[in-house]
Simulated scan of single mutants.
Amino acid sequence: MSTVNGLLENAIIKFKNLFLRLVFWIRDLYKCEWNRISCSNHLLLCTLFLNYIKSN
């Protein structure tokens, strides 16, 4: 399983490829992997991603 930092970097790359103003769930960026990520890492990844979005 990937580390949270690796997952965050992957989410940021995928996010940059999306159109602006598109609403999505972060789990949609990890279609098959999401169920293999622990619940604590779900929360951490979502928190880090939200912080990234707010700061950029």
Score class of each variant (00 low, 15 high):
1 M>N: 08
1 M>G: 12
1 M>S: 10
1 M>V: 05
3 T>A: 07
5 N>E: 12
5 N>P: 03
6 G>M: 08
7 L>H: 00
8 L>C: 07
8 L>A: 03
11 A>F: 07
11 A>D: 03
11 A>W: 03
12 I>K: 12
12 I>Y: 01
13 I>C: 04
15 F>S: 08
15 F>V: 02
16 K>A: 04
16 K>M: 08
19 F>Q: 11
19 F>W: 04
20 L>A: 10
21 R>A: 07
23 V>L: 07
24 F>C: 13
25 W>L: 15
25 W>V: 07
25 W>A: 15
25 W>F: 15
27 R>Y: 05
27 R>T: 04
27 R>P: 00
27 R>W: 00
28 D>V: 00
28 D>A: 11
29 L>P: 04
31 K>V: 00
31 K>H: 06
31 K>Q: 06
32 C>R: 11
32 C>W: 02
33 E>M: 03
33 E>N: 03
34 W>I: 08
34 W>E: 06
34 W>Y: 02
35 N>S: 15
36 R>L: 02
41 N>L: 01
42 H>G: 02
43 L>V: 11
44 L>E: 01
44 L>M: 13
45 L>Q: 03
45 L>P: 02
49 F>M: 12
50 L>Y: 08
50 L>C: 12
50 L>T: 08
50 L>V: 10
50 L>I: 09
51 N>A: 10
54 K>N: 13
56 N>V: 12
